[in-house]
Structure formats: structure tokens, C-alpha cells
Lab assay of single mutants.
Amino acid sequence: TTKIQIRLADGSRLIQRFNSTHRILDVRNFIVQSRPEFAALDFILVTSFPNKELTDESLTLLEADILNTVLLQQ
């Protein structure tokens, strides 16, 4: 498993454990389930350093190389 910290656009944080085989789409779905107010918003996930937009949501967390990292919601 891996721990992902997500810094949300409103300044708050979410921390969740995922399997390395989960997909970026699963992280997006977790955000929307945790904070339904973001469901209607068009947002992207970005790595904190170096900044990289995670546009291919079909990638696993392992394939995207974002295990144990911080993601930013923009």
C-alpha cells in the first residue's frame, strides 16, 4: 500500500492509503466522495515536485510514479 496526501484547492488536506494498483481515477473518485462539493468542479491533480499534471487517469499509481507522495488539486 501507499499513502497519498492530497492538498485540496480550498487549502484543506486529505490523506488516504491506496494500493499501488489503484488508478489515478480512483484518487479523483476518493476526493469527490470525501468532498461532494468538488463533484461539479473541473479539477486536475498535479504532483508537488516536480510539478506534473496527471492527465492520464487510467494509469496506476505505480505507473504514474506517485507512491507515497503529495498531490495538489488545481
Rank of each mutant, 00 (worst) to 15 (best):
T2S: 09
K3W: 06
K3E: 14
I4F: 10
I4R: 09
R7L: 14
R7G: 00
L8W: 06
L8P: 12
L8M: 07
L8S: 01
A9H: 10
A9S: 06
A9M: 12
A9I: 15
A9R: 02
D10T: 04
D10F: 15
D10L: 03
D10G: 05
G11T: 02
G11E: 04
G11D: 11
G11W: 07
G11K: 00
G11Q: 07
S12V: 04
R13V: 14
L14E: 02
L14A: 00
L14F: 07
L14T: 12
L14S: 05
I15P: 05
I15E: 15
Q16V: 05
Q16F: 01
Q16W: 01
Q16C: 12
Q16K: 14
R17T: 14
R17V: 13
F18S: 00
F18M: 05
S20D: 08
S20G: 04
S20C: 12
S20E: 13
T21C: 08
T21Y: 14
T21H: 13
T21W: 07
H22F: 05
H22Q: 13
H22N: 09
H22V: 10
R23M: 09
R23F: 10
R23W: 07
I24P: 02
I24R: 05
I24T: 02
I24G: 02
L25T: 14
L25P: 03
L25H: 10
L25Q: 13
L25E: 12
D26Y: 04
D26R: 04
D26P: 05
V27E: 03
R28M: 01
R28P: 00
R28T: 01
N29D: 10
N29V: 01
N29G: 07
I31P: 04
V32C: 04
V32W: 02
V32A: 06
Q33H: 06
Q33G: 01
Q33T: 07
S34A: 13
S34P: 11
S34H: 07
S34G: 04
S34L: 09
P36T: 02
P36L: 06
P36K: 00
E37C: 07
E37W: 00
E37A: 01
E37N: 05
F38E: 09
F38I: 01
A39C: 06
A39F: 05
A39M: 09
A40H: 14
A40D: 15
A40E: 14
A40L: 10
L41T: 14
L41Y: 10
D42G: 04
D42W: 04
D42M: 07
D42C: 00
D42K: 03
F43K: 11
I44V: 13
I44F: 03
I44H: 13
I44S: 10
I44P: 01
L45V: 09
L45H: 08
L45E: 05
V46E: 11
V46Y: 09
T47A: 10
T47S: 14
T47H: 08
T47P: 05
S48P: 10
F49R: 11
P50T: 13
P50W: 06
N51Q: 15
K52A: 00
K52I: 01
E53K: 13
E53A: 12
L54T: 00
L54P: 07
L54I: 04
D56Y: 04
E57S: 09
S58I: 12
S58K: 05
S58V: 00
S58E: 10
L59K: 09
L59I: 13
T60D: 01
L61M: 05
L61D: 08
L61T: 02
L62K: 15
L62D: 12
E63W: 01
E63K: 00
E63T: 02
E63Q: 12
A64K: 07
A64Q: 11
D65S: 04
D65Q: 08
I66T: 09
N68G: 15
N68H: 10
N68P: 10
T69M: 08
T69D: 13
T69P: 08
T69Q: 06
T69Y: 12
T69F: 00
V70T: 14
V70M: 05
V70H: 09
L71C: 10
L72K: 07
L72Q: 00
L72F: 12
Q73P: 00
Q73E: 04
